[in-house]
Write a protein that binds this DNA or RNA. Structure first.
Length: 483
RNA sequence: CGAGGUGUAGCGCAGUUUGGUAGCGCACAUGGUUUGGGACCAUGGGGCCGGAGGUUCGAAUCCUCUCACCUCGACCA
């Protein structure tokens, strides 16, 4: 695996040596993003955007299968609307960007650039909803939102990010709860099956929940450096917003009622997760299902008779089912191309040269293991298909193994600090449920409660007490440092 | 917002201590030889040194201010 020291080649910093630098190197050298002229705002380049489009379509498909429709609301929200739900304003106030002028003229009322759209959407739902017959409302929008962040990192925390936000209304609290859980499930399903990122799911603590929610549920992934990434949240908003926005309808008993409300979102942050979960010292490793290029065909000795023709012939045999690229650029050696596409995380490299053509075979190299095999050109589509599936599965398995290796159990604070220091990652511990303890742990260890697993995934780790105090422990929770 | 760091060609850097008007590698362009793990030769184009002010005969280099970006903390998807 040793890389040649070559001064004209841009190297990626080793992730062991300097993880943040590794991340910055990877995202810029693979041309996923670039920094824009405005602080905190990133340009998503074609290769990065292609990944987003694939993530988007995987989620969008499931949203639609579960009855949701897409819509679009304006970017700007009047200040008066923003202020209607008290907790919500308070939570978002510090990071809202405001439009104050139209041309040279000062506006009568400031307009918020949406940090999230609950308020404006509720204001419209209030106009539209009259009867229980219209419920449930199952709507979603794909858009970007702006939150004026102090420190930013591409994909993980930017002042503008792309996401989807679902906003639904229901007749009953139970129905809203079912919806909230259904969407969390879909989030996890796509994250695990498509992005190959194993998730820990559960409920947020009161301290960590969304501003204005009854309850927030989350999926959390563990990165290579042992930090957790909140990867998607689903909120049961109860009637906080529907009351604040006076959304009423005539219910089955012919009485005016407030509906129950949910919202849920995933964002371009997922791309950051994919990079940090699967990546290695050679760069990106993309799960086949969201790789913009699944197979890159590299002709070897492409000037020789028949090589390029064969490469294109193979491309045609594969491109009905898979995303294929033939790298026939002259002037770059095959070796250079191997390294380039490895860095960009393409799952399979197909090498085809005179020798292969003579033998009716080609070489397949997989990105996840580096393994190279010679395979027959007959049934190449089938061979490639199987290998892509294998890679997809292997990436999930590897990520799960990594997470398990980086998950420890702690019985008390000293134990906690020791484990965290020795093996940064998730710390499972029992918790009494008090905010004081939650804050104390945070202060002393720098970790927060990432989630409280659901009952069916609860464990009794050890007999007795809260990790932080003498009270009896109510729940097992996951702690970690987080992005 | 607190601490540290960096701004010189598209990218990576040298030059700054000891001021004299900008250099290297890669990339790019053209021609040729190459091609199974980051090829080579030749020729060529491209920067006023983040910005402003000051000191000086003269500033990338010294001084002052400022801006941007990166990293680490505190806060948040």
């Amino acid at each position: 695996m040793g890389k040649k020291q070559n001064n004209h080649v841009k190297e990626i910093t080793s992730m062991e040596v300097d993880f943040p630098q590794w991340y910055t190197d990877v995202i810029s050298k693979t041309e996923l993003v670039d920094y824009s002229p405005v602080k905190g705002f990133m340009v998503i380049r074609p290769y990065g955007y292609a990944i987003w489009e694939l993530i988007q379509s995987a989620y969008d498909k499931r949203f639609k299968e579960t009855g949701h429709e897409n819509m679009y609301f304006p970017l700007l929200i009047p200040e008066s609307l923003m202020k209607k739900e008290a907790e919500h304003v308070e939570g978002f106030a510090p990071e809202v960007a405001w439009v104050t002028h139209g041309g040279d003229k000062k506006l009568a009322e400031r307009l918020a650039i949406r940090p999230t759209s609950e308020t404006i959407i509720c204001s419209m739902y209030a106009k539209w909803l009259n009867s229980y017959r219209q419920l449930p409302y199952l709507y979603n929008q794909w858009c970007s939102v702006v939150r004026w962040e102090k420190t930013t990192r591409p994909f993980l925390r930017t002042s503008e990010f792309l996401w989807q936000e679902g906003h639904t209304l229901h007749e009953t609290h139970e129905e809203a709860q079912t919806e909230t859980m259904q969407m969390l499930d879909i989030y996890r399903e796509i994250a695990e099956n498509v992005l190959a990122m194993p998730m820990v799911v559960g409920k947020k603590s009161e301290k960590e929940k969304f501003a204005g929610a009854d309850a927030t549920y989350t999926m959390e992934a563990l990165m290579h450096d042992g930090q957790a990434l909140q990867s998607g949240t689903s909120h049961n908003l109860g009637q906080h917003f529907t009351k604040a926005f006076d959304i009423t309808y005539l219910d089955r008993n012919n009485e005016q009622s407030y509906p129950f409300h949910t919202s849920w979102g995933v964002s371009t942050r997922l791309i950051g997760g994919i990079i940090m979960v699967h990546g290695d010292d050679n760069g990106l490793v993309l799960p086949p299902k969201i790789a913009p290029i699944q197979v890159v065909i590299i002709p070897v000795a492409q000037h020789k008779e028949g090589v390029l023709d064969k490469a294109w012939e193979l491309s045609k045999a594969l491109d009905k089912k898979y995303r294929i690229k033939v790298d026939d650029l002259e002037g770059n050696s095959p070796g250079w191309k191997f390294n380039q596409w490895e860095m960009k995380g393409v799952p399979i490299r197909l090498e085809i040269g005179p020798r292969d053509i003579e033998n009716g075979q080609c070489v397949l190299a997989r990105r996840d293991t580096g393994e190279k095999v010679q395979v027959s050109l007959e049934n190449i589509a089938e061979t490639v298909g199987k290998l892509l599936e294998e890679i997809q599965q292997n990436l999930f398995d590897k990520a799960l193994k990594m997470r398990e290796e980086k998950t420890s159990t702690a019985e008390n604070l000293d134990d906690f600090k020791k484990k965290l220091h020795e093996n940064p990652g998730f710390i499972k511990a029992m918790w009494c449920g008090d905010k004081d303890c939650e804050e104390k742990v945070k202060e002393e260890t720098g970790t927060s409660i990432r989630c409280v697993p659901f009952d069916d995934e609860q464990e009794v780790l050890y007999e007795g007490k809260c990790v932080c105090c003498d009270k009896s422990a109510e729940k097992m929770v996951y702690f970690a440092r987080a992005y």
